[in-house]
Design a protein around this nucleic acid. Sequence first.
RNA 1: GCCGAUAUAGCUCAGCUGGUAGAGCGCGUCCUUGGUAAGGACGAGGUCACGGGUUCAAGUCCCGUUAUUGGCUCCA
Length: 648
Amino acid sequence: MIKITFPDNSVREYESGVTGFQIAESISPRLAQEVLAVSVNGQVTEINRPIITDAAIKLFKWDDPEGKHSFWHTSAHLMAEALQELYPGIQFGIGPAIESGFYYDVDPGETVIKETDFPAIEAKVMEIVARKENVVREEISKADALKLFTDKKETYKVELISDLEDGTITLYRQGNFVDLCKGPHLISVGEIKAFKITAVAGAYWRGDIKRKQLTRLYAISFPKKKMLDEYVELMEEAKKRDHRKIGKELELFTFSDTVGKGLPLWLPNGTALRLRLEDFLKQIQKRFGYLQVMTPHIGQKQLYVTSGHYAKYGQDSFQPIHTPEEGEEYLLKPMNCPHHCEIYKFKPRSYKDLPLRFAEFGTVYRYEQSGELHGLTRVRSFTQDDAHIFCRPDQIQEEFLKVMDIISIIFNALDFKNFEAQISLRDPNNKEKYIGSDEVWEKAESAIIDACKSKGLKAHVELGEAAFYGPKLDFMVKDAIGRKWQLGTIQVDYNLPERFQLEYVGEDNQKHRPVMIHRAPFGSMERFVAVLIEHTGGKFPLWLTPNQVSILPISERYNDYAKKVAADLEAQDLRVTIDDRNEKIGRKIRDNELKRIPYMIIVGEKEESNGEVSVRKQGEGDKGSMTADAFAKMINDEVRQMTISFIK
RNA sequence: GCCGAUAUAGCUCAGCUGGUAGAGCGCGUCCUUGGUAAGGACGAGGUCACGGGUUCAAGUCCCGUUAUUGGCUCCA
């Protein structure tokens, strides 16, 4: 007998050789039906593997990420089996489970797999599911594995196996399909009741642009048909929140082929929203001791040679602009920092002047690859809510923490709860990609890690993701369909002060080098507004929304009264529009609801004679009557309540 | 940049196997002057992204370009 310990620390005895499935059966038939994977002493594996010694186990169902992972991983093999039957000679790359579904990279040779082929593949998948093939785990030697896949002419698999360490290699086999795989898997493909291919895309073999581009098929699967239907519906709902769609509907921004791709045009409503966000940040920054500066949109090429940006990005960015007479070279500015360094150098600085915090909503231009452009989240012209803090080395920690405070104020104010923090360090095996000495890198990296610790911020560390001049802390937020975008960023930089020969005079009357912190809480106004649109579905908070109130006269007879009310409200700082179209009231309500105006006020005979307004709240309906002044007070109180926590 | 898809009125889209362009919304005019999520009539709007080709005939088929789009790569 062996002792099995459960997650609640209870212990039960079983025969040696018992499987996860049998343990589940011993607990409840329902659990046995739903269990997908089991972890034995922390190692996730199949539910039909015998457990021979005492162990701590955990059973995973669909609701557990481990359960989903096994399910989707097996689904990837299942799709591969279908592809193998439909496209003889197809070769396989890798096929992992991902956050939402799975993919398989395949090389179908001369054949092109297109969207129109999806139904046939899905049908074949379901045909294989009906066979209820068991998934069988096998262990073989590396040499045998190499032979097996060489015989099968699976060149990608052979490459993968060659890179593995010598020893035992695991294979998983179901029906006629066998794959190199670590597992874990379901024990039968029969569990997969619903399956849908979601996209086809090109993907370079091993992510290497120089190698062959394989065909990547993205798909998702579920243990119940209904779950797939729900998923499809959820995705459709999410698409309705797409900032590109809402941006058009609410007339926030647009693009023009004539102006150029990736160059956003901000419409009046979007501009109003953005300016309000900028004012909001300016107020906070003022409180934190920032000084607003302004710099031009271009700079001499030499400026960026000095900063190091030219060497790194010069070839892959917008090319220099030449003056007609002297042939001088200027670049559209891709960064604000070099300009700010020159502001620092305007006059000698004393240690007493530091930290100096220069802030600018600086518009920058970067040549992004055309395939990468995406709505407002990835553009070629964007405005950073940029600032550079020049400080003494002993001030880094404190300044870094203050920036984190600003970011948390902003995220709270806008109700961004589900963000991820990422510490990006340099790749220790690839140091030549970065500029600056080991010593300064190590100092900067530990400053960031310590700051996160002292704030209790959970951040995951990514090696090799640092900027070329320094490590950074980024804040990422997901969009409507789950894509991650980087918003806020804080970067410690010892290199630019060196390159620009920045100095301050210390207490000791000697010259010292300051340290720079680059930071942008929003990241870029474009991307931030995009994510804000998707998070709110266009229903912006009252303090931020371009139009707070729409006045709807019952008929044209009350237009004059509406104008008088509008003037009253505007005098009390409300943002008001009048819908004086020749339409019935029901129609006006509907249209203004769709425009996501937070409040509507309805005026007709009754209101005019009582000197009141009838109030209606977006999404909620009739709120009764009150005087215009009472309404204005109510709105202003609501705005004050919202902003009291973050604006002093 | 690479692989796949898409491009028809201001917007959302229809247009079957080629036979001289259609709807709804929006817009304009008129009727209606209304009470809490779509009142009615009439009308104007399109070199079917652009350039070639096949054909008696191309929105429709083929090629190229541009833009958009799902990914990959990249992201100061």
